[in-house]
Design a protein around this nucleic acid. Sequence first.
DNA 1: GCCAACGTTGGC
DNA 2: GCCAACGTTGGC
Length: 156
Amino acid sequence: MPKAMAHWLMKSEPDVYGIDHLEREGTTLWDGIRNYQARNYMRTMAIGDRAFFYHSNAKPPGIIGLMQVVETGLVDPSQFDPASKYFDGASKPEAPRWDCVRLGFLERFDALLSLDQLRQEFSAEDLPVVRQGNRLSILPVSEASAQKLLALLKLA
DNA sequence: GCCAACGTTGGC
DNA sequence: GCCAACGTTGGC
């Protein structure tokens, strides 16, 4: 039996890169991740995995769309670009410190599922993004929570 | 604009 | 290896 696809939650600020940008471009390199835990989660992603697109620093913040992993194990080019805010002088091309994945647009939901609503429906154990102070921009979503999220998002 | 949470850095 | 200082995230 094939391994079941995993689900993720990935944050981005809509003013910087939101669901509108992704819908327009079709796919995007999820670059600029400079947190080891988030990077390590990306390393465990497989092609076909799905990710909920979460708008952070938005009014209100919440889940707005669905993406699919289309390419894995890519070197993040911004770490070598001195003009980039994500430039990392300590990372060497022969041993890149940061990598990323490519994500494809799947769906934009009719209504955003706000953080307030998420807090009503999920505990911090079931969906870590609702935990106060959680700054990690990439989080795993359990299969049960993913199915519940999809049901809630389709209902809206 | 404030500030809680928390990862990272650097002195020792 | 400890931990204080610092910087960043991101909700409010």
